[in-house]
Lab assay of single mutants.
Amino acid sequence: IDAAQIVDEALEQGITLFVVNNRLQYETSRDSIPTELLNKWKQHKQELIDFLNQLD
Rank of each mutant, 00 (worst) to 15 (best):
I1D: 07
D2N: 14
D2K: 10
A3C: 13
A3P: 13
A3N: 02
A4I: 05
A4N: 06
A4V: 05
A4K: 14
Q5N: 07
Q5P: 03
Q5K: 11
Q5F: 12
Q5Y: 09
I6T: 03
I6V: 06
I6W: 06
I6H: 01
V7T: 03
D8N: 15
D8K: 15
D8W: 15
E9P: 00
E9S: 04
E9L: 04
E9Y: 05
A10I: 02
A10G: 03
L11W: 11
L11G: 04
L11N: 09
Q13F: 14
Q13M: 15
Q13C: 10
G14L: 04
G14S: 03
I15Y: 08
I15F: 08
I15V: 10
T16V: 13
T16F: 14
T16H: 15
T16G: 04
L17D: 02
L17I: 08
L17W: 01
L17M: 05
L17Q: 01
F18D: 04
V19C: 06
V19D: 02
V19P: 03
V20C: 15
V20E: 14
V20S: 09
V20Y: 10
N21W: 04
N21P: 00
N22M: 07
N22T: 04
N22E: 06
N22C: 11
N22Y: 05
N22A: 07
R23I: 15
R23E: 15
R23C: 15
R23G: 09
R23L: 15
L24V: 04
L24C: 04
L24W: 01
Q25W: 15
Q25I: 12
Y26D: 00
Y26S: 03
Y26W: 15
Y26R: 01
Y26G: 02
E27K: 14
E27S: 14
E27V: 14
E27I: 14
E27F: 14
E27W: 15
T28L: 03
T28H: 06
T28D: 02
T28R: 03
T28E: 02
T28S: 10
S29G: 08
S29L: 11
S29C: 13
R30V: 07
R30D: 05
R30H: 07
D31G: 11
S32K: 08
I33S: 01
P34S: 06
P34Y: 03
P34E: 04
T35P: 12
T35Q: 13
E36V: 08
L37Q: 03
L37E: 02
L37P: 00
L38G: 03
L38H: 04
L38E: 06
N39G: 06
K40D: 03
K40T: 07
K40L: 12
W41C: 05
W41Q: 00
W41D: 00
W41V: 12
K42P: 02
K42G: 08
K42T: 12
K42N: 13
Q43Y: 07
Q43P: 03
Q43H: 08
Q43D: 09
H44N: 07
K45E: 15
K45F: 14
Q46Y: 07
Q46R: 10
Q46I: 07
E47R: 07
E47L: 12
E47Y: 06
E47T: 08
E47Q: 10
E47A: 13
E47F: 07
L48Q: 00
L48G: 00
L48P: 00
L48I: 14
I49R: 02
I49T: 05
I49F: 03
I49K: 03
D50W: 09
D50H: 09
D50L: 08
F51N: 01
F51Y: 15
F51T: 01
L52M: 04
L52I: 07
L52P: 00
L52Y: 03
L52A: 00
L52V: 02
N53C: 10
N53V: 12
N53Q: 10
Q54S: 13
Q54Y: 10
Q54P: 06
Q54L: 12
Q54F: 11
Q54V: 08
L55Y: 12
L55K: 13
L55I: 11
D56Q: 15
D56A: 14
D56S: 12
